[in-house]
Design a binder for these strands. Structure first.
Lengths: 246, 246
DNA sequence: TTTACGAAATTGGTTGACCAGTTTGATTTG
DNA sequence: CAAATCAAACTGGTCAACCAATTTCGTAAA
């Protein structure tokens, strides 16, 4: 994205091609259509396709060979990238449990009066959104980020949030997401957030750590509950390795 | 780099331009020479320069604006793109401290006899590599991964390792990396690893957690020590937010 | 003098043609 | 029949010309 929010053409093309790699079952080493084929197919000049290929190459999806063709990246490159984008929601939640509970505990000692006030406002936003039946994923996210900010660690939390958000594009994840926000779990999560805030207000590190852990554990259980075990799309997401409990 | 080790032309050009940004004192927001200017100056076609600009844009160094020109990345772009997806070494070490110390603590209860034996072998590999003066980044990595594997959490650790490895391409990181492996810090890190293993062997969770934390803290201090504060390339990496201590 | 306008210059965006390696497969040669 | 050869076809690499958005700057209007 450029700074004004618009995308350059090559980026759009690269994204559509990346989607294609993911959806059409390309495997590492497979030959990808040539620049010419795609330019004809999409009705654009080869230079544009070429620029998109460069982006895909930089991001590790493609291996471009002069005179031969382009191949879906193999070996080290792909295993890293595939694995990266192949995080399931459960793995990500674990990461969040580990990171955010530690951070919440630490925040108890660094948080300022004004941080507390901001968190209260965020909580109020969440409450109103639920009352009005609005979606409002924003306030939930803001709550977590603001705690991280209080400890100068928002980059980390933000990064994991990014991975999480990336997942939202997949069909299976979208369905889960919808169900979660359609149901009333959010009210119980609001209570969780309030508990975290209460612990922070009393500067009780251990309590804050536990509260955040429990909150994300509740989210995990909800996710598990909503997942259809029979649904093949959920394959690979149901195995939930357990991490260090608090 | 392509898979056969050679570089595509646009990459060489992009690297020379990146060097130029670093060496000629460009600051965020400064206007960069136009594609035409550079193509004339280097005696190559504008397409090549354009491809190089795309690479620089993807890596977060440039902000390309149609009709206006290209500018050294400023504001959101640099802070969001460079700092978010391209963490500095210190941020990554924090992530590792949070994740791996929790995991090490948990591993104390899940680790099996055969895991212990494998870890011992890995440690032996490390010891021999140091004796022979070999580089051997592999054994160090393996030690950390194997502990994560014992708790079924290797995906997470692996992901953070990936981000770490990504950094190795930047000039500043490469220099750090070289200095670390040239010096004898590795011996002290071997002792750290041994301490973690010892704690795991006695199934002492708290001790394992602390040992892993301390190990990564030692790495962090070493990194800090080796960093040249005067070096402009280190700007932005020296600020080290503190995270929850054990 | 200040502001508003608009043409001209400058910028990145896009295209099609041609260059240079690689692969392919029919043909020659042993 | 098998191996070597080599030319044709296919690939990505490079280029110069033209298109479209933005900026610039002189001019005219207020």
């Amino acid at each position: 994205m450029t700074s004004d929010g618009s995308k350059r053409r090559y980026q759009e093309i690269a994204e559509s091609l990346a989607r294609r790699i993911a959806e059409e079952g390309y495997r590492p080493g497979d030959k990808f259509p040539t620049e010419r084929q795609i330019s004809l197919e999409m009705g654009i000049s080869r230079s544009l396709v070429r620029e998109a290929f460069i982006m895909l190459e930089i991001e590790g999806y493609l291996d471009v060979r002069k005179g031969s063709g382009s191949y879906v990246a193999a070996g080290e490159k792909i295993s890293l990238n595939i694995q990266k984008s192949d995080f399931g929601p459960f793995e990500l939640l674990q990461a969040r449990q580990l990171l955010e509970s530690s951070i919440a505990g630490f925040a108890a000692s660094t948080i300022t009066k004004s941080d507390i006030i901001k968190l209260r406002e965020t909580l109020e936003l969440e409450r109103r959104a639920i009352e009005n039946g609005e979606e409002d994923y924003f306030a939930d996210r803001q709550f977590h980020l603001r705690i991280a900010e209080a400890t100068q660690n928002s980059v980390l939390v933000d990064h994991v949030e990014e991975l999480w958000k990336k997942r939202e594009n997949s069909p299976m994840w979208a369905r889960l997401h919808d169900r979660i926000f359609d149901l009333s779990y959010r009210t119980s999560w609001l209570d969780d957030h309030a508990a975290v805030l209460e612990a922070l207000r009393h500067r009780n590190a251990e309590q804050a750590r536990l509260a955040m852990w429990q909150h994300l554990e509740n989210v995990r259980l909800t996710l598990l509950e909503l997942s259809d075990v029979g649904d093949p799309e959920f394959d690979g997401y149901l195995y939930t390795p357990t991490v260090a409990s608090p």
